[in-house]
């Protein structure tokens, strides 16, 4: 196959391997402890790149969210219809909601029975029985849309979920690693691996003994 097709189909995976190798090499052979932790972060990013690459589709949308007109297909015509009529009355923006579900809730929550009666009159005067019936129907059971969806139009949402938690847990473990580095620095005085190993060799004669806490606090004051 020609170079263009080969590159398009495989570049993500090659870059994933290269990033992973950069991360692993940094953990193994860098002398500074913080550089090792940075290598770990790069390695983690490479694995996330792999999973997210698996999930993308050629003609998938940009966001794994159902578009609005797919969910509420029938209300578009009625929204425009009611927008023209309501602007004449002083109902305000609240009645112009796109879903009948919200209209029902508004009606339930309002203590204004006049508004309720007027709303019914509103429905009847316009002869729009479909709106009232549809409002009730929407509240009870919406028309299932599973058959009208082509799965090729949406990106695969499952790896995104896994990677979302992986990123947050990764930063928590980064915090643990950094706190260990601070502790090592306070005891041995450096964060270079060779100097720490030398200090361990030299200190093995003296040893580190444990003391009760009051004596240690008294020593520091």
């Amino acid at each position: 196959m020609d170079l263009q097709t080969l590159l398009v189909s495989k570049l993500n995976y090659w870059i994933f391997v290269i990033l992973m190798i950069v991360g692993i090499w940094a953990i193994m052979s860098k002398n500074n402890l913080i550089k090792k932790i940075m290598g770990l972060a790069i390695f983690q990013a490479a694995v996330i790149l792999f999973y997210v690459s698996l999930a993308s589709k050629e003609h998938g949308t940009d966001i794994p969210i159902y578009p609005h007109d797919l969910i509420h297909p029938e209300h578009h015509g009625e929204v425009d219809h009611h927008v023209e009529e309501d602007s004449a009355k002083a109902h305000g923006a609240y009645e112009k909601h796109e879903t009948a579900h919200h209209e029902e809730e508004h009606v339930k929550h309002s203590d204004d029975h006049d508004a309720h009666a007027e709303k019914d009159a509103h429905h009847d005067t316009h002869g729009d029985h479909q709106e009232a019936a549809h409002g009730v129907a929407h509240h009870d059971a919406h028309a299932p849309i599973a058959d009208s969806i082509n799965a090729d139009d949406f990106n695969n949402p499952l790896p995104h979920v896994l990677m979302l938690t992986a990123i947050v847990v990764g930063v928590a473990t980064l915090g643990v690693g950094l706190s260990l580095i601070q502790r090592v620095y306070r005891i041995y005085g450096s964060i270079e691996e060779n100097e720490i190993l030398e200090a361990i060799q030299n200190a093995s004669d003296d040893g580190l003994t444990l003391q009760p806490e009051e004596e240690a606090a008294a020593q520091q004051e």
Partner: peptide, 23 residues
């Protein structure tokens, strides 16, 4: 992880006798 950091760094007072970098 938060609890672990709390346990590692804690209240800052360390029980070891010799530290290269004094508190």
């Amino acid at each position: 992880a938060g609890l672990a950091i709390f346990a590692i760094l804690g209240t800052g007072v360390m029980r070891e006798k010799k530290t290269a970098v004094p508190a």
